[in-house]
Design a protein around this nucleic acid. Sequence first.
DNA 1: CTGAAAGCGCTTACAG
DNA 2: CTGAAAGCGCTTACAG
Lengths: 329, 329
Amino acid sequence: MTTINDIAKRANVSRTTVSRALNNSGYVSEEARKRIMKIVEETGYMPNQSAKSLRTKRSGVIGVILPRLSTETSTRVVNGINEVLAKEGFQILLTDTELDRKKEIEYIRLLKSRHVDGIILLATNVNDELIQTIRNVDLPFLAIGQDLPEVTSLVYDDYHASADLTNMLIHKGHHKIAFIGVSRDDPSVGIRREQAFRDVMEREGGEINEHWMGTGDFSIDSGYEEMKKILRASGKNRPSAVYAVTDRMAIGAMEYLKEQGYRIPEDMAVVGIGASSLSQYVSPSLTTIDYFNKKAGQQAAELLLAKLKNEKVDQKFELTYRLILRDSV
Amino acid sequence: MTTINDIAKRANVSRTTVSRALNNSGYVSEEARKRIMKIVEETGYMPNQSAKSLRTKRSGVIGVILPRLSTETSTRVVNGINEVLAKEGFQILLTDTELDRKKEIEYIRLLKSRHVDGIILLATNVNDELIQTIRNVDLPFLAIGQDLPEVTSLVYDDYHASADLTNMLIHKGHHKIAFIGVSRDDPSVGIRREQAFRDVMEREGGEINEHWMGTGDFSIDSGYEEMKKILRASGKNRPSAVYAVTDRMAIGAMEYLKEQGYRIPEDMAVVGIGASSLSQYVSPSLTTIDYFNKKAGQQAAELLLAKLKNEKVDQKFELTYRLILRDSV
DNA sequence: CTGAAAGCGCTTACAG
DNA sequence: CTGAAAGCGCTTACAG
């Protein structure tokens, strides 16, 4: 492995000068610069980033913490993050918590020890230890998806998105709407989306029936199972629509409904959230809400870069969304 | 930021001893160890990985080079890689070439300068400069998806998978089969899958018609467009089935066929490759081939770990596949 | 069982 | 415009 010393020797200058030439810092004679660059070219020399990072305290690496590597939402966000970061010469150090809160905290500290310049967390829950850890590592930090106190957070407008979706169903004539949510550990998805649903239902005189309220775990299977439970529990008094808080659960619900011979949307309307590619190609195509995940990733990266440049950034950002009306309603 | 020196001072030992205690290397009295560990706990000390890496020449980071961050195939592979690596305390440094060959090479060198311990490349093409670069960086290296000369490569069995698929169509009575492939720059997908198709068609007396041969670019849209072209070009003599070399293109083709009022599979059978989640939920569900991408990722990671331990590993690995018969045939 | 010293490959005041 | 020297935070022979 060639080092800066090798280049210096071959160019007949000190390594100080080589460093200056490479980083465009301080004066270097045109002559020396040319000699150095030529040798750099020839040897394919690349500075050792560990040494550089040790010295400068900057690594050019951003840590990204994901709840799950294999969901479309995560992938889109990471894609957006990477697009912006790569352009600025940053790389992503990727970690996957597999939805384990312990790991979330562990990885924040690990990333710190790996000298990342900043961290972007796709957050799925909010708890004191997490907040505490974030404060302690004292690194440029950005959360996406949950509103973390005292942390710069990009949040989807879950309340209004959910309210719009519910309103839309009501205005299409549905007053009996089943709901498939998730655990309240996830404030954004588990609490806010449900709260908006309940608020709108109440305001508009919809019927909320606890037999029609299910709790899934984000998976397609859980959507299927919850739909089954709801239908079995509801007896003669059946909902005419089902609102699942994620596309995957909505698609699971559709599977069960189709199996049971329900026509969608005639016998039962279905809506989800997420605008997954599945939602587009499933049959009938699923009405859903697009959260522009990729854009969220881009924005997160841009904000983090701003922080790295010591620019002041606001603490809270609300992301926009878009209702996509399709054939399932 | 607390360093090993801080710990040493507070524990009244030298940093040498702290290092030994932390790494379980060499002798440390039980007493000293306890004192040290207690302080490590209290301070939440984590060793600076840049310093460690500079000194030991190992970073605990594996570079992963993806052609596209946002495809299900990539995601599944990365997921498999990560699962194995995380267990061993390694992290992934992620790069996305956006299908740009220049970047492929650039990133290999970049990852080297970032002191990764090894590299896994999801390869999409084979060319001399690439092979040369891999040889030059001289790092534990693993390719997935293409057979790179002199590089440990995990390849899907594209030839036989494609042959099986073609055979299956023929045995279902299809002798006129349209084919939507991709550029021959990609030997695995662009050449081998097509070659197997042609070989089987020839052997079994199927009709190969150049009007029925399209070339897409992996996207759903391109599947749609190629299907359109094929149908328009074929006039009265129409195929009864279409084989697209990826699920996404197959789904694009299905979209066009459905728009034109074709019944699937009665008027036209459709098959793809990839076992994407889309293939399962699209309607009718798509017959396809599962390449077990996650398992490929796991195996790649395991092989790389073996290399890091200086174990000898074979140079070529062929992965298995599975035909999934669904309603589109 | 323990510590002083050297060194990994860089950058950056400082002096000239 | 250039270089000698210090130092970033670790690990590892080496000596005791």
